[in-house]
Design a protein around this nucleic acid. Structure first.
Lengths: 138, 138
DNA sequence: CTTTTTTCTGCAAGTAGTTTGCAACTCGCA
DNA sequence: TGCGAGTTGCAAACTACTTGCAGAAAAAAG
């Protein structure tokens, strides 16, 4: 396992317990809103402040350890950078978030580059629709 | 031109000046946030309340005359339903919103249906990336 | 190991965007 | 014209997020 202490300090960040906990929470949760990260962190370290979570998410994003996506309802969702290997399929009915490999979009991405010069950031890109479950139900 | 009075009343809605103005503003603006719609409406009808704009956008969306999209920064953006014939290419650097025809995504959409049973709502789907301009600058 | 520097944290207040409760109003129908 | 449900304006409430500041605590220096 990577030495987390080094990992953060290499980026020029101080190693505080709060920071470590936030990063760890994001990694464990997969997708999570700031609120969910705070909740997770508080389960082991109750005193942590919500604004500390926000600030750390921002800081960690600046150094590239996490990234956020907008999944629709407004709130941002955070991911560990190394987990960003999939698209997000957000169901507008049940709110579930499914995954699909990046390659699914490869030709689409290429078309956008070729025809519009638009470089899609496929990891920051939520796809809305209706999932299989909800399609079946209605 | 369609008779707007009929158009709204057919949907079971009352025809109020505010409602007409909101719908008209959305149609004229193309993409617009609730705030922008309110501003537009106020240019001809200053007394209108912001919450009336929100409520009418919601109502008009329920009957299918307008739709909203999340373009990333958090705020929703509204479109007239008949204008929803393009994808939105949102540039994360300059914030500009470009358009591309729906067909660009056709094969991608089909892949998602075939492999994941996920029915993408291509009109409700913002694509993040970097536009040609910003790519050139950096 | 102590001091110094600098970053980070907690707290409280602040802001932006959106929603809600409610009384007054008005549209559509009889 | 008058009634009743749908609609509006207003103020307050709410949610999600940000900011200022003083004290706490890492890291660097001595």
């Amino acid at each position: 396992m990577v030495d987390k202490n080094q990992e953060l300090r290499d980026k020029g960040l101080r190693l505080t317990p709060q920071r470590q906990l936030v990063l760890q929470a994001v990694r464990e949760l997969g997708h999570a809103t700031p609120e969910e990260v705070a909740e997770k962190v508080r389960s082991t370290h109750p005193g942590i402040n919500l604004s500390t979570v926000y600030r750390n998410l921002e800081t960690l994003e600046n150094v590239g350890l996490v990234q956020h996506t907008h999944l629709g309802h407004g709130g941002a969702t955070y991911h560990a950078a190394e987990e960003l290997t999939h698209l997000h399929l957000v169901c507008g009915k049940c709110g579930s978030v499914g995954d699909a490999p990046i390659e699914t979009a490869a030709s689409f991405v290429n078309t956008l580059i070729d025809e519009y010069g638009f470089k899609t950031d496929v990891t920051h890109f939520a796809i809305y629709g209706t999932c299989e479950n909800c399609t079946a139900k209605s």
